[in-house]
Amino acid sequence: MIRCLRTLDVSITLFAAAVAGCATQSGTVVLLPERDGRAAAVHVKQGERSLVLDSPYAAAEVTSTGPRAAKVGADEVKAMFGAALDAQPMRATAFTLYFEEEDALTGDSQRIVEDVLAAIARYPVPDVVLVGHTDLVGTDTFNDELARKRAESVRQRLVARGIAPGRIVAYGRGKREPAVPTGDGVPEPRNRRVEIIVR
């Protein structure tokens, strides 16, 4: 068994399992309850055989004979995966800042910048991702540039408040992903925004 565990490469592991008669090689897959209620599923495939896990604590026992459906409790999950779960990094926190025009933040959003800074301070080694967006007024080229400029303006604001520039990445998505769908050419303040991920 130990030999199976210590082998590094997957193909070599299978080979070693066959040669050493390592019949105890196995595994478990458990679907965990979602924190944010997203639709969830894991598809467990072994050659031609497969199993779909799509409810909390649904599990698959994986052995050389194929995946077998199982059910585990929260206690078993803790016993098996407690160390891995305890090492889970903090989840990302998301914010949205809105713009009056060009790259000027609305008054409300200027206050939200303080919340963003407070969130960044909670992470041990924070990464900040800024994605700029525009409404559907103007060409793609114009809006790509405007979106990038908005993200860049937020980046400069954070850097001015002491966040290391190397921890921030800024991108523009132009008019491709409006928060509120509108026809082309329609001004929409809710689409003039920078989405922020702190993680």
Binding site: G27, A40, V42, V44, K45, Q46, A59, T63
Partner: peptide, 23 residues
């Protein structure tokens, strides 16, 4: 991937082991 299986992930939280004793 694990030594025995391939997991397709459809947006979810899950845990997987590659050697634990069977349930």
């Amino acid at each position: 991937r694990t030594p025995l299986a391939i997991l397709g992930v459809r947006g979810t939280e899950f845990a997987v082991s590659a050697h634990d004793p069977v349930l």
